[in-house]
């Protein structure tokens, strides 16, 4: 029956493209999560009145984050080609999309992390300080656990944005569902391929949103 609905679809290609999309988004998401938290913490801790208050570092990190967040992703992909060749050794394939995906998504997530950390009750941080906690203890036992629902809902939003980015990364030969929809579906006028790729991307997004919402609500004990 499926073959009647999608006559032009080569299932092997669809499967391969789905795997590529999941691979690109998965690895990029993991790296974005870590890098975003590090940058977000840096933004938060160096801001005014915080433990590592430093206008200099804050302004620099802030500027870097804003610049990479502002460049349209498709342009960032092209700009990063030389960098990608140095790091990955090639500019083709799913792996080659990773640097751009991470550099595009991490600053976006870093801002969300910063907002999440700002919402941690100042009194609780003060209480931890009054108990003689080190900054590292405050980070790992107060700031991150207390902002975890915000961090998780932020990474959910970022993950969905990343899926969108992977589709664009197809344009520089990274593969994936976006690439398939464009080259197979659009350029060869096989609308059913485009349709199926879209459905699959939607499915992935729904699943991510569902998991993200579920974890967030489980974590939030407020």
């Amino acid at each position: 029956m499926l073959n009647n609905w999608f006559p032009n679809v080569i299932w092997e290609n669809i499967w391969l493209a789905t795997k590529e999309t999941l691979y690109m988004s998965g690895i990029a998401l993991l790296a974005t999560f870590i890098l975003g938290i590090v940058l977000g913490l840096l933004l938060f801790l160096t801001s005014k009145g915080q433990m590592w208050e430093s206008k200099f570092i804050n302004v620099i990190v802030s500027a870097v984050v804003n610049i990479f967040r502002s460049i349209p992703f498709i342009i960032l992909l092209i700009l990063l080609i030389p960098f990608t060749i140095i790091v990955v050794g090639s500019m083709l394939g799913a792996k080659a999309a990773l640097p751009a995906l991470i550099i595009g998504a991490a600053p976006f997530y870093a801002r969300m992390v910063e907002i999440g950390l700002r919402e941690v009750d100042k009194g609780v941080i003060e209480a931890a300080r009054s108990m003689g906690a080190k900054t590292s203890t405050i980070i790992f036992k107060v700031l991150l656990p207390e902002s975890m629902p915000a961090l998780v809902s932020g990474i959910t939003v970022t993950a969905i944005a990343l899926i969108g980015y992977t589709a664009m990364a197809g344009a520089i030969g990274a593969g994936g569902l976006g690439d398939l929809a464009y080259k197979e579906g659009f350029q060869r006028s096989k609308n059913d391929v485009t349709m199926l790729a879209t459905i699959l991307i939607l499915l992935i997004v729904f699943v991510i949103q569902f998991i993200g919402d579920f974890i967030t609500s489980k974590l939030d004990k407020r």
Binding site: D121, A127, S130, G132, A133, K134, E146, K221
Partner: peptide, 20 residues
């Protein structure tokens, strides 16, 4: 200072407990 603070505890108007 951190060591000394362990001998001087504090309680707060808004309790300041970790909700997590």
């Amino acid at each position: 200072l951190r060591k000394a603070r362990q001998e001087i505890s504090m309680i707060f108007q808004h309790f300041n407990l970790l909700w997590s």
